[in-house]
Design a binder for these strands. Structure first.
Lengths: 211, 211
DNA sequence: TGTTCTATCGAACAAGCGTTCCACGCGGGA
DNA sequence: TCCCGCGTGGAACGCTTGTTCGATAGAACA
């Protein structure tokens, strides 16, 4: 792979800039104009070189069909996770309904796809109050959860304790008919309760703190 | 804003899908074909409605000039933050050098731009050990920091205590010649020390926990 | 000096493309 | 019944756009 000529570098930069501004790629003649190139064939010539070097991908015979392949400036799909409510000790955990899945909702947090790991039934709640500090979750933190009733041992879950009428974030361990709820904070003691008393509302996927 | 007709919803979904696959928007005739619409004018008619509802943006007279405005499926530039090392109580905090800024580095975490808030001198460290639990930061958490020596009162900073040879994450308050280091955990007590003993390595931008 | 490769230039072609116009059917309201 | 808005169909217009072709000039090399 050869080095890029100044002209090719400039073309690449312009494509980046243009996509960043318009959300769709430029036409060859727009590249020509912006980079002060006298002919469209010269643009085509240099685009072929860029394509050969693996920096862009082009669909032939299709207008504006330039796709950036370089890591810098490449765009990724961001996953919009709806924030469906708040979670606090004495309140039931909000459960997503059909409506709250609407991605047109107001309150969303955008995350890179690898942070939700391909899961699609993912929602987020905002933590209210200091009751979750034993899970190392602060007031105002955002907890991203996957809606599920099942959880493997050792996974951090949002659980509703029916008898105590209390929501909590703990690591779940089944021990016979009982359940051990272990705080993330290793210095704190676990809670033991009957399996029937625990209602798993979701698995914790990520915790995010933006001060 | 009216509700979308099934046809409009289908068009919107197709545009999303197409962009996701090709990295450039579809033409009107491609929408027509994919959504089994008999005429291009019908597509245009519905696109105008989508535009009026603020779901897309179109540049007139320009081919493939459809831009998605809805959060779902929109593509955003992702910021690649380099993870330059680990942070532990008894270790100095790693400081980014010219080389570690390289976005071609192996260990990076991609974040949506609003999570780094336009700051560009941002790096991340992985937390090792349980020594930061008073900052509600767990073993394995990732702390995103902005490199700066200055910090306003009340901001969470990564500080190096020279005398104690200790790294810590605390909220910083200047009180005369002394400094109060307040844990994020409201139930824990602050530390007081001389201003000269504290070396601010960076401000905490975000804390992320991916179990 | 002749050859070859690289880069450029201008023009033209043909397909792709957004737009526009007119016509039609349908349903609701006056 | 007439009228009007809405959604649809079909076709044509004219600009946009990717592509192609021939010609040219300079550099490197034998």
């Amino acid at each position: 792979m050869k080095e890029l000529s100044p002209k090719q570098q400039r073309i690449l930069d312009f494509i980046r800039e243009f996509i960043s501004e318009h959300d769709y790629p430029p036409s060859i003649r727009q590249i020509q104009e912006a980079c002060v190139i006298s002919s469209t064939s010269v643009v085509d010539y240099n685009l072929r070189i860029l394509e050969k070097n693996g920096l862009i991908r082009r669909d032939r015979e299709v207008s504006r069909a330039i796709e950036l392949l370089t890591p810098a400036g490449r765009r990724q799909r961001v996953v919009a996770v709806p924030i469906i409510g708040t979670i606090a000790a004495g309140q039931p955990i909000p459960v997503p309904t059909e409506e709250t899945w609407s991605t047109y909702s107001e309150d969303v947090i955008e995350l890179p796809p690898d942070m939700v790991g391909g899961r699609d039934n993912v929602y987020a709640v905002r933590v209210k109050g200091d009751s979750m500090i034993d899970a190392l979750v602060n007031d105002g933190d955002i907890v991203v959860m996957e809606q599920t009733a099942a959880a493997a041992d050792g996974e951090m879950v949002a659980a509703w304790l029916k008898q105590e009428q209390e929501a909590t974030l703990k690591k779940l361990y089944r021990e016979g008919s009982r359940v051990r709820l272990q705080p993330a904070n290793a210095t704190m003691q676990p809670i033991y309760t009957e399996a029937g008393n625990v209602e798993v509302q979701g698995k914790v996927v990520t915790v995010i703190r933006v001060p």
